[in-house]
């Protein structure tokens, strides 16, 4: 596209982000400050993710963008088209074809492989923010690895509800050192963070922080010995492809209370349906 640098951001900015990303990969789970730029979309729509994607994108890359698991929602469509226009790269909706996947709220159902990069859009990078309002104090707590406070939150949940009530953005320990917010992915996806062959990068545009989980890094969801971490999903199966193990969205279909459950990962659902139709 004329008048714009490859992938929108200028080369100096991309270098700055890459330097921060290298540091983030070197210290898994540690939040690295970076000079977040104004992007042509509002804060909260993925300004962090889009900057990370722009910084790691090359002309040969194939990009997939998902929002809540779906390839066809407004945000996913516009970010995908943004890079198709500003970088002229190929895009896809197939998880296995993509080299870079920018995501909001989900990790694809299909397992990732070495060489793929998963870029998360992060609204609130600081896992302790809701418990300790002072940024200086949370930085100190990270520095000294004092994470008892997070367990106080889990203790309170078990006391009040009988179980940990965090259903998304479930805090994790990365490489047994840094407490990290996995961005608002469902707790259902947390096990996929653990020893994932793909490189996982996290970008928070408004908060101006980057962090990363290098491939095959140990990621442990916080829990108590007698209340181990458990994932939850709707007990239904997908009304389109019939999957009874994938993460489901509940969709209201009419004003009479009609509703259906469908896979939140549209690519996963579509490829299952394509397979089912083939033999016929």
């Amino acid at each position: 596209m004329n008048g714009y640098n490859f992938a929108y951001l200028d080369e100096q900015t991309k270098r700055m982000i890459r330097r921060a990303l290298l540091k983030a990969v070197a210290i898994p789970g540690h939040q690295i400050p970076f000079g977040s730029r104004e992007m042509p979309l509002p804060y909260g729509w993925g300004t962090g993710g889009i900057q990370v994607t722009a910084a790691v994108l090359g002309p040969q890359d194939v990009l997939k963008v998902i929002d809540q698991g779906a390839d066809d929602t407004t945000n996913a469509v516009s970010i995908r088209r943004f890079f198709a226009r500003t970088a002229g790269i190929a895009t896809t909706t197939h998880t296995s074809d993509a080299t870079i996947i920018q995501t909001r709220h989900r990790i694809p159902e299909q397992g990732l492989r070495e060489g793929q990069i998963l870029v998360y859009q992060v609204p609130m990078p600081e896992p302790l923010a809701k418990l300790e309002p002072s940024r200086a104090e949370t930085t100190r707590m990270h520095g000294l690895a004092e994470y008892g406070l997070m367990h106080v939150k889990l203790y309170e949940d078990i006391t009040r509800y009988g179980h940990v009530s965090i259903s998304y953005d479930y805090p994790v320990m990365v490489a047994e050192r840094y407490l990290m917010s996995p961005s608002p992915i469902p707790a259902y996806d947390n096990p996929k963070l653990h020893r994932n062959p793909a490189l996982q990068l996290f970008g928070a545009g408004r908060e101006k922080r980057l962090y990363a989980i290098p491939p095959y890094t140990a990621v442990r969801s916080l829990d108590f010995d007698d209340h181990p971490f458990r994932t939850t999903r709707a007990p239904q199966h997908c009304d389109l492809c019939g999957d009874d193990a994938s993460y489901l969205d509940e969709v209201v279909t009419d004003n009479q209370g009609g509703r259906m459950f469908v896979c939140s990962d549209t690519d996963h659902c579509e490829s299952r349906r394509a397979k089912q139709e083939q033999p016929a």
């Binding site: 008892g148 106080v152 203790y155 829990d223 010995d225």
Partner: peptide, 15 residues
């Protein structure tokens, strides 16, 4: 939770 905080800070992980 208040009484337990110091225990959790010391590494107790058994609710």
């Amino acid at each position: 939770g208040n009484v337990g905080e110091r225990l959790m800070a010391q590494g107790s992980r058994h609710y």
